[in-house]
């Protein structure tokens, strides 16, 4: 999902030019435009219908779930009573709520901080056009293309307390062993490490494309003025990369907020909720036990949507401001 940043940016930017075409003047032209409108909407109709049935309706059902008090029985026969915001109140008062919210915030911000800074360092490094640079850069995409369950299960085994390679490496260095996935102090860090690993390629690719848009003349001029590599980075690269950086980070926020697979497969949010985030909590309420609690699960999900939308709108605003074509 994350690749869309660059193309999506274009799509928004270019729409501006598209809508201002040909104000209808004479009647003939107007008829032409009108029949064009019919054709245009005929081509759009399938996607509009699709969005209504497969996006709007599931979302509507989700809101409905959260506003009624569903049990397993009423889930099937549809006789749940309307309870307004009771589910939300219950969820917020639940002992898991604050830990889940805090973990979501920590998971998101720490992930982004590391993914972005490592991705930026690598982008600058790979931009130097040495031998094999493009091949190695392509190999860096691998973690991002692998199915998440593959990455998550590989990291699970690497973090295994007794037989994992990570602990064995720590032992070789004379450091104490860590119960990465089974200790409440470390589980969040373990899933963070795996998630940072997965997100680096995305940051690398977008920031690299940003570097390509910075004029080489600037660096040449700076060299003539006697700037060293460090100065060039902080005086030229970093300021000029700010728009792309903002977009990378905001998009990263939106996508990291909804990370679910990694955490669920590695720790199931445990032990004792120590790596539970809003998305794993919502899943656990709805699908994680024999007796599902759909209404609170939907309420948690909707809280998550609200948070994602706030960052999403900030992202779209930033993007529009930066690309006002």
């Amino acid at each position: 999902m994350t690749t869309s940043a660059v193309p999506a940016k274009r799509a928004v930017g270019e729409k501006g030019g598209a809508t201002s075409v040909a104000p209808p003047g004479r009647p003939a032209a107007r008829r032409r435009v009108r029949s064009g409108q019919w054709a245009a909407w005929a081509f759009l109709a399938p996607v509009v219908a699709y969005l209504l049935v497969f996006y709007a309706f599931p979302l509507y059902r989700n809101v409905e779930l959260s506003l009624k008090d569903y049990t397993v029985r009423s889930f099937v026969d549809g006789t749940a009573p309307f309870v307004w915001f009771d589910n939300y109140a219950k969820v917020i008062q639940n002992a898991t709520f604050w830990p889940a919210l805090t973990h979501t915030a920590i998971f998101t911000f720490v992930s982004i901080a590391f993914q972005f800074s490592i991705g930026l360092a690598l982008a600058v490094f790979f931009f130097q056009h040495f031998r094999l640079a493009s091949t190695l850069r392509a190999l860096f995409l691998v973690p991002w293309l692998l199915p998440l369950i593959v990455s998550a299960s590989t990291w699970s085994w690497m973090f295994n307390s007794d037989s994992g390679i990570v602990n064995s490496a720590l032992e070789a260095l004379g450091l104490p062993q860590i119960n990465w996935l089974t200790s409440p102090d470390w589980s969040l860090i373990a899933v963070l490490i795996a998630n940072i690993w997965i997100g680096i390629p995305f940051n690398l690719v977008i920031l690299y494309s940003g570097l390509q848009n910075i004029s080489g003349d600037l660096y040449e001029a700076a060299s003539l003025d006697g700037a060293n590599g460090w100065q060039k980075f902080w005086r030229i690269t970093f300021p000029l990369l700010r728009p792309v950086s903002a977009i990378t980070i905001l998009l990263g926020l939106v996508y990291t907020l909804k990370v679910f697979d990694i955490i669920w497969i590695m720790t199931k949010g445990g032990p004792a909720d120590s790596s539970t985030t809003l998305s794993t909590w919502s899943y656990r309420l709805g699908f994680g036990s024999v007796l599902p609690d759909f209404s609170p699960a939907a309420a948690v999900g909707n809280i998550l949507i609200l948070i994602a939308l706030v960052f999403g709108l900030v992202y779209l605003r930033t993007q529009r401001k930066l690309d006002p074509s």
Binding site: G36, A39, F57, L59, L304, I305
Partner: peptide, 28 residues
């Protein structure tokens, strides 16, 4: 073909990408 209302539709599509899959899953 530049349909009227195309711009809001593109906006909706951008927003749609941001909806967590877990929420879609519950609705589905």
């Amino acid at each position: 073909l530049r349909p009227r209302g195309g711009r809001p539709l593109s906006f909706i599509l951008l927003i749609a990408q941001m909806i967590p899959a877990i929420i879609m899953a519950m609705g589905f």
